[in-house]
Write a protein that binds this DNA or RNA. Sequence first.
DNA 1: AATGAATGAGCATTCATTCAT
DNA 2: GATGAATGAATGCTCATTCAT
Lengths: 198, 198, 198, 198
Amino acid sequence: MSKVTEKYVLPKRKGEASRSRLLEAAAQLFAERGFEQTKISDIVKAAGVTQPSFYLYFENKDAIFAELSSQMTQRLGELMLELGQFQTSEDLPQKIQDNLCAIFTLLNQNPSLTRIGLEHATQAPLLFATMEQMMVAQLSLIKQQLKPDLDLELAASAMIGMVRHFIQTQLIPQKRSPAELARFCTDFQLFGIAKLKL
Amino acid sequence: MSKVTEKYVLPKRKGEASRSRLLEAAAQLFAERGFEQTKISDIVKAAGVTQPSFYLYFENKDAIFAELSSQMTQRLGELMLELGQFQTSEDLPQKIQDNLCAIFTLLNQNPSLTRIGLEHATQAPLLFATMEQMMVAQLSLIKQQLKPDLDLELAASAMIGMVRHFIQTQLIPQKRSPAELARFCTDFQLFGIAKLKL
Amino acid sequence: MSKVTEKYVLPKRKGEASRSRLLEAAAQLFAERGFEQTKISDIVKAAGVTQPSFYLYFENKDAIFAELSSQMTQRLGELMLELGQFQTSEDLPQKIQDNLCAIFTLLNQNPSLTRIGLEHATQAPLLFATMEQMMVAQLSLIKQQLKPDLDLELAASAMIGMVRHFIQTQLIPQKRSPAELARFCTDFQLFGIAKLKL
Amino acid sequence: MSKVTEKYVLPKRKGEASRSRLLEAAAQLFAERGFEQTKISDIVKAAGVTQPSFYLYFENKDAIFAELSSQMTQRLGELMLELGQFQTSEDLPQKIQDNLCAIFTLLNQNPSLTRIGLEHATQAPLLFATMEQMMVAQLSLIKQQLKPDLDLELAASAMIGMVRHFIQTQLIPQKRSPAELARFCTDFQLFGIAKLKL
DNA sequence: AATGAATGAGCATTCATTCAT
DNA sequence: GATGAATGAATGCTCATTCAT
């Protein structure tokens, strides 16, 4: 029945479109309300499809949540690998700031996904733990530029905590820009808030 | 029949005991699993009472959760008032460290309550926001001892984030003691991690 | 331990007082809300006794309701026997009116009991049926003073229906007095509302 | 594929059928036992569907009861409007009789609905009150054909009470036909039961 | 005579998930 | 690819009733 003159159909099949709409709707709802409070019926309503259609694309509620959770986590993981490692020779503060800025920028791109991954996902604590370990490794590399008696583990943990809190209270509510946050973080971490070092 | 020497029994009636057991059981379960995942049937099973008994002591599931949430929040609020305000004349670092130590110590007393209040309670974000405002006020008082261009809001936020993360990842898992954490926090916040300020 | 000087106790034992208070409270609540909507906890609260005390005086919820239901039904039955039967010789309209007035007066004495017996009691339909049968018997006695083709059963039913509705909508809300209602009923039943019989 | 000659199938989808069965089952059960005594589990059992299916069609127990209550009330209200008003010129007794017959006939069509609306619905008293007011208005129009000292309010109340009682004790148990009841009512109301007016 | 405490049995409602079409 | 209809399995909560004191 389709004639040649008919506009050659969307590259994304109709099914793909439905799947995307479901993901989008779910992302927003999960971010706003969390996993338990989000009902499948809400998701499909927001996506404009019927309930059984949901199961055409996702095995169950867990599956779609897992897919969303991992989206962000994965990108973040990739980014962290890209960022490479500190080198003694480099301009340390600038490097740290650049890295943080890249991370904040990434997370800023999809706030819903960020909230899901960092606030609601069960593996969030694991993610932070992993990041802390990476951070410890990084700090070890530049140990001689740090205070001699510094507890690296606590330092890493403190930095992650700070960043995490900034994401939730500054970045997601769009109060501050990635660059601004990155700059502040770097300075705070390296030199603290006191006027003079006595 | 009762002899003078007999230790006068606990005035706690049997009902009070049941209520306490319910609170304890609920605290642990809410802390471990969160609100939705904790079923009343679990709570009463853990407390060793029947389901209708629950409703003898609490209006509903929300009520017992609210009671637990506020227990910690309230104590924390009271403590913060007690701690008073920074004074220019004092030994600043010591004062900060003492305050933090008091807070960590309090939260360390009942980990379940702490988790509920800080991780699961809906008002947790509000609590942190309030703490940030108090912190901004404190910092203003000692502004001349801080870096001239310091963004007080971000500084407060960073400090709260750090403390919050320490509570979850160091204090509750009993990895570090309140004193240790307080000392580290103080030093980190005031002077950062870099060896020298160039 | 009780001394002679002690005031010799209330003629009604304390227990009797509690029982009465329970009956009173129950009467009012049953009348207002009906059987199902009235909780034992409401009754005891209104009566100022504890829940187990209720079971000291009544076997269960059904029992107290039955007692209240029968109170009114019984008195009504006794009255109807007293009123005796129509006699041809008497002044018929006056006799009917007197009887009705006696009934309305009795029911007017305890509105709660009346409502329970007539609106909420399960046997209410039976009560009305019995009254209808008695009424048919009465009417038979004065058959020659009635229209020749009158359907006695329907006539009795109509009269009971009228009386019943008056009790609910006029007597209990205290809109009209027993005497007024009795007079109207009599006239209406005997002669209808039309100006002339053509 | 469908041929023109094929009778175009009932537009009633399967869901509509379930909904109807639920309504029917509920109507009967509510009529027999009243609201409280009727459990959703009874309704669905009688309708041959599962419990969650109930909530596919009705928000809750109240909703289905309200729907049933209003069905009858609404039809009755419409009928009463249709019946129009008494006119002096008409054959009054006949007109009254016709109107009553129409009402009895309507109510006779669905006894369950009638019982629900008149016996169990909370608004039943209101319904009767409304009908009484309408009746007072009607009687006012033909005042000159009535006894001069007639209390219109009581007369209307008496008539409604009679009709109401007939519905419950004669019509619903199918003891008398609508026509029979209408005829009796008319005669009774207009002229009473006495042989002669003295 | 009275009560603090407790409970068995039940009920309305919800939600993720599936089947037949 | 899509859907109208249906459901198994819970879950929070209520209420009449009883036990031990």
